[in-house]
């Protein structure tokens, strides 16, 4: 059983929901990322989605675009991001780490080399925003062979046939994009999300985590009620941007954001 499946199964057994924060590796600077990952865990993260910076993040709104630019100013490469995960693993061997990014940096490294290095660094899952399963026939088997979970997106426009097909290619969990738009936009409609996620649950046995538009504890709880986990990204990245010159203050601000979400999600269990 993969580390991701193990964590999600344990949460399910306890009647709890996963809190999955996202930050961009190398933002605000490469030497801060590992410490920030530990901060996220201390504040209640069950799984970390670590963004791999890319020059042309087409699916992201301005907040994560700017995070990529900050990271790339320091030359943060995919190889360095894997090094950060390796360092993180020296003191945390239980929190799953999912790399989230775009295909080209992986293609530039070479898929085989990337999969080997990801596994050796302690990465658990790979989510490639611009890689639908139709184009993954070369890449996905390399991940599977190394027991790396391939995580794919589902969206409000995904048809039932595709939900089934995408789920078959996925392991760990599926990531439901809560609305049509880019990261960081406003637009989540909890009732619509509830309806679609319930429908997805009918079509796949995999856990469903929901991302896009979750910025506060109340929304996290509302979405947690109908899913297996919530992904929180832009609001954290925004916080990093606003506190980039003061690491102590940043740590506190991130904790102040995540902690109430953790409590609200755990409040659903009782």
């Amino acid at each position: 059983m993969s580390r991701i499946t193990g964590v999600l199964q344990a949460l399910k057994d306890q009647g709890r929901k996963a809190l999955i924060p996202f930050i961009t590796a190398g933002d605000p600077a490469p030497d801060q990322t590992v410490a920030l990952m530990h901060t996220l865990v201390d504040a209640g993260a069950d799984i970390i989605e670590l963004g791999v910076p890319f020059s042309d993040p087409m699916a992201d709104g301005p907040v994560i675009q700017l995070a990529c630019e900050r990271a790339l100013v320091h030359g943060t490469s995919l190889r360095q991001v894997l090094g950060m995960v390796r360092t993180f693993r020296e003191t945390d061997d239980r929190t799953p780490v999912v790399l989230m990014g775009y295909l080209n940096p992986m293609e530039a490294m070479g898929y085989g080399a990337f999969a080997d290095l990801a596994k050796a660094s302690g990465v658990d899952g790979i989510l490639t925003v611009d890689l639908p399963p139709e184009e993954a026939d070369e890449v996905a088997p390399l991940f599977t062979a190394r027991e790396l979970d391939a995580i794919f997106l589902l969206s409000p426009t995904t048809t039932d046939d595709r939900i089934r097909a995408i789920s078959e290619h996925s392991s760990g969990y599926v990531y439901y994009v809560s609305f049509k738009g880019v990261t960081g936009a406003q637009g989540i409609n909890v009732a619509e999300v509830a309806e679609k996620v319930q429908h997805i649950h009918e079509l796949t046995a995999l856990p469903v985590a929901v991302g896009f538009g979750i910025r506060d504890a109340k929304t996290a709880a509302d979405v947690g009620k109908v899913s297996d986990g919530v992904i929180v990204g832009s609001v954290l990245v925004d916080t990093i941007a606003n506190n980039q010159d003061n690491p102590e203050q940043l740590k506190k601000a991130l904790t102040d954001l995540l902690h109430p979400m953790r409590e609200a999600l755990d409040g659903l269990a009782s």
Binding site: M58, D130, P132, E135, F152, L153, P156, R162
Partner: peptide, 12 residues
Amino acid sequence: GGRFVSETLMDS
């Protein structure tokens, strides 16, 4: 070639 886009655009 191919179709390397995020899921939301696939249906369109």
